[in-house]
């Protein structure tokens, strides 16, 4: 169940758009924030408030890669392995994450600290390899500094 404040927030978002379906993306984002990930309950909550069938809400959300489609850790590492990053050793970085934290692509560490998502290009080819941790951007990654950076996320 969502709190009154969140319901109000969703209803306000609804008013910004010409119809309820248009408000799905931000509404789903809020539900994800409240439920931690896009659980069936999260979709149901969005559906109840916007009056859009929950199946449609799920269909829309699953189109996008950056929603949490399963429970995830406290910090999400989006690591790019596209051409430039790959050439500059991103795949080695993937191995290092596995060695250091036991973190495999599309999984979460047992302590719930990190989740790893392998991304396509994040537009930092000039300073590759690059990653996003939650919403923070980090580039010019090396085998050394990636650990230093990640150590600051608890």
């Amino acid at each position: 169940m969502l709190s009154e404040a969140v319901i109000k927030e969703l209803e306000e978002i609804r008013q910004r758009y010409p119809n309820a379906r248009a408000a799905l993306l931000p509404a789903i984002y809020i539900a994800q924030r409240e439920f931690g990930w896009l659980s069936p309950e999260a979709y149901e909550a969005v559906s109840d408030i916007l009056g859009v069938p929950k199946t449609i809400a799920r269909g829309v959300a699953t189109f996008y890669a950056m929603y949490k489609h399963k429970p995830m850790g406290r910090n999400i590492v989006h690591l790019c392995t596209n051409v430039s990053c790959m050439i500059l050793g991103a795949e080695r970085l993937v191995d290092i994450l596995k060695e250091r934290y036991g973190l495999e692509p599309n999984s979460t560490t047992p302590d719930g600290r990190f989740s790893l998502v392998i991304m396509e290009c994040i537009g930092a080819c000039g300073t590759a390899p690059a990653m996003l941790v939650n919403t923070d951007f980090h580039d010019n990654l090396t085998q050394e500094n990636i650990i230093q950076i990640l150590e600051s996320y608890k």
């Binding site: 199946t55 449609i56 799920r58 269909g59 699953t62 189109f63 996008y64």
Partner: peptide
């Protein structure tokens, strides 16, 4: 009924 939808991309 909107019971089914296209999932993923």
């Amino acid at each position: 009924a909107s019971a089914i939808a296209v999932i993923n991309r």
